[in-house]
């Protein structure tokens, strides 16, 4: 697992986090390429199912990035997203997964540094946790049987 490179999905809202990611790029602030962004109009659109499906399909970590609290372009989509992330975390906990595999982030459109910083920290956190348990299970059918 030494050269484990996590695959990370970031659901980013159009108005803030996605723009912040563009900003990080235009300021040439480097962050790990592990993060792949899926753009949504508002983090309020991100369903618990989307997060769980991403994990099921093989994401090692998923985060939802929206506007700063109180600054949501659609009033409160980001606080709803936060509740859903918390819900998914509880659910993961019940499954015996690490809850840190999913997270909610907030940033304004101008915060390129914050985008890059959170991408870095989150990637590092997932690197520490190791691969998504589903992937391990798929690779090791015996081990799976042993459980």
């Amino acid at each position: 697992m030494n050269n484990f490179e996590p695959e990370i999905v970031a659901f980013c809202c159009h108005y803030c986090a996605y723009t912040a990611a563009d900003m990080a790029g235009s300021k040439r602030i480097f962050y790990p390429p592990n993060v792949k962004i899926i753009r949504v109009p508002c983090t309020g659109k991100v369903d618990a199912i989307h997060i769980l499906k991403a994990l099921e399909k093989g994401a090692d970590g998923v985060y939802v990035a929206g506007c700063l609290e109180g600054d949501c372009h659609f009033k409160n989509g980001n606080t709803r997203a936060k509740h859903r992330v918390t819900y998914v975390q509880k659910y993961l906990n019940d499954l015996g997964w690490e809850t840190q595999r999913v997270a909610m982030m907030n940033m304004s459109a101008g915060m390129g540094e914050r985008f890059a910083g959170t991408a870095r920290e989150f990637t590092e956190q997932i690197r520490q946790l190791g691969p998504n348990p589903i992937k391990i299970a798929a690779r090791n059918p015996k081990e799976q049987a042993a459980i």
């Binding site: 949504v40 109009p41 508002c42 659109k45 991100v46 369903d47 659609f74 989509g77 709803r80």
Partner: peptide
């Protein structure tokens, strides 16, 4: 509709 998608997710 403003198109945020909150209802769709909920």
């Amino acid at each position: 509709c403003h198109g945020c998608g909150t209802c769709a997710a909920d």
